[in-house]
Write a protein that binds this DNA or RNA. Sequence first.
DNA 1: ATGAAAGCGCTAACAT
DNA 2: ATGTTAGCGCTTTCAT
Lengths: 359, 359
Amino acid sequence: MTRQIGRSGGSALPLPRSVDVARLAGVSQKTVSRVFNDEPYVSADVRQRVLDAAEQLGYRLNNAARALASGRTRSIGVVSLGTALYGPASLLMGIERAARNTGYAIRVVNTVEGDPAGAAGAVDSLLDQGVDGIVISEPIDEGPASLRVDVPVLVFGAPPAFVAPTVVTAGIDSRLMARMATEHLLDLGHTTVHHIAGPQRWYDARDRMEGWRAALAARGLDAPPVVEGDWSAASGYTVGRELASDNNVTAVFAANDDMAIGLVRALVEAGRRVPDDVSVVGFDDIPVAAYVNPPLTTVRQLFDAVAEDGLNLLVHAIEKPQDPLPPAADLPVDLIIRASTAPPPPRTTPARGRRQPLA
Amino acid sequence: MTRQIGRSGGSALPLPRSVDVARLAGVSQKTVSRVFNDEPYVSADVRQRVLDAAEQLGYRLNNAARALASGRTRSIGVVSLGTALYGPASLLMGIERAARNTGYAIRVVNTVEGDPAGAAGAVDSLLDQGVDGIVISEPIDEGPASLRVDVPVLVFGAPPAFVAPTVVTAGIDSRLMARMATEHLLDLGHTTVHHIAGPQRWYDARDRMEGWRAALAARGLDAPPVVEGDWSAASGYTVGRELASDNNVTAVFAANDDMAIGLVRALVEAGRRVPDDVSVVGFDDIPVAAYVNPPLTTVRQLFDAVAEDGLNLLVHAIEKPQDPLPPAADLPVDLIIRASTAPPPPRTTPARGRRQPLA
DNA sequence: ATGAAAGCGCTAACAT
DNA sequence: ATGTTAGCGCTTTCAT
């Protein structure tokens, strides 16, 4: 369905420039520039005259000219993985909001996983466009392709190889969150916790796995074998079937909520009740997590706060390259306990055909 | 957690410009420009010499200068509602991909619902940045604030009030999809279908409601009262409780999957089984839809295809303002039948106070 | 507190 | 097929 609504003919009346405003206001062009850049030393009435003239003419600053003359674009490039996943999408929204609050515009470039050019290609295209800083939103390990960049870089999570004036790392501590999730299950009395990991090329997936491992290690437990998904519910379902068929599995920590949901489905189909037989914890607290069946226990990170903190740091690095970076905010982490977790089922005597290890 | 990785001191060596490349290649500056713009009339070996010189110097075109001189930014602005909803996020990804394929960069500005400036403010800030075209990703009704814009505008769904050189509308026919969803329930034997609508300020929510209404009207059925959510699972749950308490409700079409999931939760909590007692259809086919309990019947739109089609139209309007717009692609629509829909329960005499077990 | 002049690095229009 | 000359609309630097 496509419709053309209207097309006002060649209304190519040239847009007003700052000289036009200057002429109308009876000042020099430079004064107009001063007003629009909030520079000091402009008397109040001159400022008002200029503003009025601009208003009357419908003047707007030409950003290309501004960028050319000043060498700064007042924009920040974001390299994002082209997914509609809740986490990345939320972070992107947060970044945009934070950027706008600091007066920067956002240029987004997606890299598809498996993209030959990868993040390097995306960064390149941002540099081509001209940006004052770059954000790597979901860093993944693409091998030793170290990249030279002339602007500050913000990486959420872990620092890939960049040679840049400044590299800032920000984000919530995924390790800690994963550890909390795992400890919750342990505290309920489960003797061990299995893990459905995210794709290990993602640094964040690795962090979550490490947090899980650390929680087990802290109680002297060996980590069971990890199964790996791709963040999707579909993958959670697929790899979840292995776990569902293993009666020793009573608690699973999934690296995100989507995989947790897929896992629950696999468990239910295998006739194992959640949480009666198996407890499941997710990660992210996606909006549906509270409403799926059963409502999902999960950990939540505040994407907006993360984005804001990171962006402020980046802008600081852009605008005051000499200053040391301020410390990062300490961001709260929430474990949200719902109905998908419970104490393990009571020990049953070894039934026929059922292996019951001591442990 | 924040860490500063490195800061190479004032390595402010000036970036090479096209004259530098020209000098090194032994040609004029204009020839360099020709090469980088793929203009005709450049001999193969001169082109190669220029490319080599550029490579050697690490030259990249200065976009600000280019934009200033040409009056075009080769970028497209997107006005997006700042949500991490699956639909909008998917569309945004599709837009970025499509734009990049046509050589345009993307500038995103979010409007939060209830933003005083609204879409008008967002468009304004895009115009400030300088864009060659604008995309209104999820148009909502903000009243009669007609806006004057100097560049072509693409609106997905329905056309808000814009005075622009060209206004293009694109998108899948939501009415048709809603109608299919409703007819599926009717075909199963339900005597009527209830509807959880999206926020009526969204044109798309209105379209879905109209499609539902049309399907009922086509069979001579009166539409039951509509309940309205805000797209979220939480709202689906809240308004779904009303529906759950009404034993005449046997079939519900929710305007998106999230609300459908919230509704299912409300139904289950009220002791009504899905699909045995009540059938539910969603809209979007979000990735978890196939894995929730029960797997959700829904309709799917191909966001990538929608985005690509719309963007090609927009680029056409930008680059060939004289030409008439080509016709839009005819995009496929899928009804995906899963386990949340079934024939209505057999008529029973009103059994009151009967508690049903959870599904 | 305000103004004049000189670019920023490119593309456009016109040579040749 | 290649080069020359003007700007594009600002910010900068330096005067005043």
